[in-house]
C-alpha cells in the first residue's frame, strides 16, 4: 500500500524547504551570480506554494496561475537588471566576489 503523500501539507513543506535552501544559499554564497541563483531557488518554492494552494483549496478559479505568471515576469526583470549590474561590476572590479568588491562601509579612522 502506497502512503498518501500528494496533499497540501507536503506541497507546502516542499516549497518552504526550497525557500530555506535558497536563503541558506544567499547567506552562504560569495559570488554575486550565485546569490542571484539562490534567490531563484527561493522563488521556485514560493511559486510552488501558490499553485498548490490554488489546486487543493480554491479550485474555482485559476487566480494563482496568474500570480505565477506575474512572479516569473518579475523574476525575469530582476535577473536582467541584476545580471547587467554584475557585468558592469565585473568591468570595474574584474571580480564578482562580494567581499572583494566592497568599498563602502564604516571607515576605520
Amino acid at each position: 500500500m502506497i502512503p498518501h503523500v500528494f496533499n497540501l501539507q507536503n506541497c507546502l513543506a516542499l516549497s518552504l524547504l526550497l525557500v530555506l535552501i535558497g536563503s541558506f544559499g544567499v547567506f552562504r554564497r560569495h559570488s554575486l551570480i550565485m546569490i542571484l541563483l539562490s534567490v531563484e531557488v527561493m522563488l521556485n518554492g514560493v511559486n510552488l506554494s501558490l499553485v498548490a494552494f490554488n489546486y487543493f483549496r480554491w479550485g474555482t478559479s485559476e487566480t494563482s496561475h496568474y500570480l505565477y505568471m506575474l512572479s516569473i515576469g518579475v523574476a525575469a526583470v530582476e535577473a536582467a537588471v541584476g545580471l547587467s549590474m554584475i557585468i558592469v561590476l565585473f568591468k570595474n572590479f574584474n571580480d564578482i566576489t562580494r567581499e572583494r568588491i566592497s568599498r563602502l562601509g564604516e571607515r576605520s579612522a
Binding site: 554575486l32 542571484l36 530582476e78 537588471v81 541584476g82 561590476l89 572590479f93 568588491i101 568599498r103 563602502l104
Partner: peptide
C-alpha cells in the same frame, strides 16, 4: 564603482 556597489547591494537585498 561605489555606485555599482550600492546598486548591487540594494538589488540583492531588495530581491
Amino acid at each position: 564603482p561605489r555606485s555599482n556597489e550600492a546598486g548591487m547591494k540594494y538589488l540583492l537585498l531588495g530581491v
